[in-house]
Design a protein around this nucleic acid. Structure first.
Length: 202
DNA sequence: TTCAGGATGTACT
DNA sequence: GTACATCCTGAAC
């Protein structure tokens, strides 16, 4: 079985963020089986990281999941209308996570298209097809991910990460070079603003 | 094509 | 009351 286990997540957050590129996020829910290939991630490294929700050890109802065991989903609500999906990393008690910023739609295109634009995939114009899952808020909307899944075990049945394209019946994509750079939307984070904790394909 | 502004609710001060 | 790990729309070019 190619489903990633908690040991994968229980490591250094930067390593996990980099290695998540190319993996498949799978969602099984009311819209059927949806899957997308991870194209972009960001590491949030805990109490020392001014951009991280747990900076300074802040422990609140919202951040509680990050203090728990690795391999769970940390999902929060932002800007009044969007959700963001993270994976909890490092050993329990070390509150770090990886934000999933972008996916390439892989399976369940009709379900994804309906969740995003209320139309079947065939009815989407080119610009809509390119914008299905290419942002943290968009991918949550398109994959039917809400706070109902906060704390969900990523080795469970409704939301998990898969290592192999073959397991999903998909061809193996060509390997691509990985780049890193500063994270998006954290200008407030002083020195942490420029840390190269964002990983993406060139 | 790029850009400014608004939507909207929760968390935390 | 303020800030926020965002996205969409409409106007100007």
């Amino acid at each position: 079985m190619s489903k990633l286990s908690p040991e994968f997540y229980a490591r250094d957050t930067l390593t996990v963020a980099r290695e998540l590129l190319g993996k498949y996020l799978v969602r099984v829910g009311p819209s059927g089986l949806l899957a997308g290939r991870i194209l972009e991630t960001e590491a949030y490294t805990g109490p020392e990281d001014k951009a991280c929700h747990t900076y300074g050890g802040r422990r609140t109802p919202r951040t509680e999941v990050m203090f728990g065991p690795p391999g769970r989903a940390y999902i929060y609500f932002i800007y009044g209308m969007y959700h963001c999906l993270n994976f909890v990393t490092e050993p329990e008690g070390t509150p770090c996570a990886v934000l999933i910023r972008s996916l390439e739609p892989a399976l369940g295109l009709d379900g994804i298209a309906r969740l995003r634009f209320k139309k079947p995939y065939a009815a989407l114009i080119s610009a809509q097809r390119k914008n299905l899952l290419n942002g943290p808020g968009k991918l949550c909307r398109g994959m039917d991910i809400t706070r109902a899944l906060n704390g969900a075990d990523l080795a469970g049945d409704t939301l998990y990460v898969c290592d192999s394209s073959a397991h999903l019946g998909l061809p193996e994509p060509p390997s691509r070079p990985v780049a890193c750079g500063p994270r998006i939307g954290i200008d407030y984070a002083e020195e942490a603003r420029d840390w190269p904790y964002r990983f993406y394909y060139l």
